[in-house]
Simulated assay, not measured.
Amino acid sequence: MRFLHCSDVHITEDYFALPLRKLGWRRWVALVELTAGGRAKAYRNAQATLSAIARDAGTHGVDHFILSGDLTAYALEGEFRAARAALGPLASTPARCTVIPGNHDVFTPGAARSGRFARHFGDLLESDLPDYRREGAFPFVRLVGEGAAVVGLCSARPLPTPGLSYGSVGQAQLEGLAALLKDARLDGRAILVVVHHAPKSPANHADGWHHGLHDADALLKLLPGPRFAVLHGHIHQRYHHPATQDRPHLFGAGSSTQAGKEGYWLIEVQDGLVVGGTKHVPAL
């Protein structure tokens, strides 16, 4: 079986064409990152790049498409609409596509309170095993064929101020995941757990406190060995830490649409195990 994993696509509106008073102070601060930081230029073609990645899923005979968060630059309605449009037919059914939110998708308290992500992607949060939900839609489960399951977690939460971008899965979701893993319907399946924040950095260390997944160790303890993989984004580097006896595979896929660094993972599952992955560049 084959899975396409991309992340941190950051579809970006033209912020200077929008009324500043409607953006809110958090996005005013973010304008510095868009301009001086070069983010607007880096993601100018993000929608077209995501569309190309979605088309590649068909070219490569992918069984399931996974996007591990940060669909938007700063959680505007138009950015969510454009991300959904870029995915095209892939997003028409949960059987083919898993999408979870990232910290940029809950960038403002208003976006989080109004459930903006769920308004555009809530149909993709359906679960084949809904009894294990503990926090809203999460964890949700997608049974893929006879040999794999995809589990979606949410680590993205509104934070007090821009500049902080840490996350946590939380005890409720971890308890739901632990219970789920004992379900006999998952026996013999590889388990791909999708979360936005990175359990480990490219150097195989914990990420910084202000940026990292605060309960990474608790998550990894539940997923020992090559039957399991954690698919994440957040850190804008593409890397793979192979599984050990005590830890799952870790695949970081960010950022899939950044100009000059476009790409994604094709992850292979065989006989109920995650056997590896290869990096690919979209056919733009």
Rank of each mutant, 00 (worst) to 15 (best):
A184V: 08
R96A: 06
G122D: 13
G167V: 08
D123P: 05
F121A: 11
G163P: 09
L124W: 04
D105T: 12
P101L: 06
P101E: 03
F138Q: 09
P109T: 13
V141D: 01
G176P: 04
S114A: 14
A112M: 05
R116Y: 06
G170V: 03
L180K: 02
L87K: 00
F107N: 05
A137I: 00
L180I: 01
V99C: 07
R142D: 06
H120A: 05
A85T: 10
L153K: 01
L181Y: 05
E135T: 09
A179V: 03
P94K: 03
E146Q: 11
G136L: 00
L164Y: 13
V151P: 05
A179R: 12
G152M: 09
G122R: 10
R116M: 14
V169P: 06
A91K: 00
R113I: 08
R157L: 15
A148Y: 01
P101A: 06
E135S: 15
G110R: 08
G122M: 14
L125N: 09
I100K: 04
P89M: 00
Q171P: 04
G167A: 11
F117V: 10
N103E: 10
R133P: 12
D123R: 15
L153E: 04
P160S: 09
T108R: 00
A149R: 00
L143G: 08
A95Q: 07
S168D: 08
S127F: 11
G147W: 00
Y132M: 11
G102I: 05
D123T: 11
A118F: 06
N103P: 04
L181C: 05
R157D: 05
L124Q: 06
H104A: 13
A137T: 00
C154Y: 00
V151E: 01
L181M: 03
P94C: 06
H120E: 07
F138I: 03
R96K: 10
K182V: 07
F121N: 10
A149Y: 09
P130D: 15
G163N: 05
L174P: 03
G136Y: 07
I100A: 12
L180V: 02
H104N: 14
G115N: 13
P139Q: 01
T93Y: 00
S114P: 02
P89Q: 07
G136C: 09
R185M: 04
V106H: 04
P101R: 04
Y132A: 13
N103I: 08
A118S: 15
A86R: 00
T93Q: 11
R84W: 11
G167K: 04
P160Y: 06
V150F: 15
E146A: 03
E135D: 15
Q171T: 14
A148C: 04
F138Y: 15
T93G: 10
E146W: 10
V150S: 08
R116I: 04
R134N: 05
F140K: 07
K182S: 13
P160T: 07
R84H: 14
R142W: 07
R84I: 09
R133D: 14
V99Q: 03
A137P: 15
P162K: 00
H104T: 08
Y166C: 14
V106C: 12
L180Y: 02
T161D: 02
F138V: 08
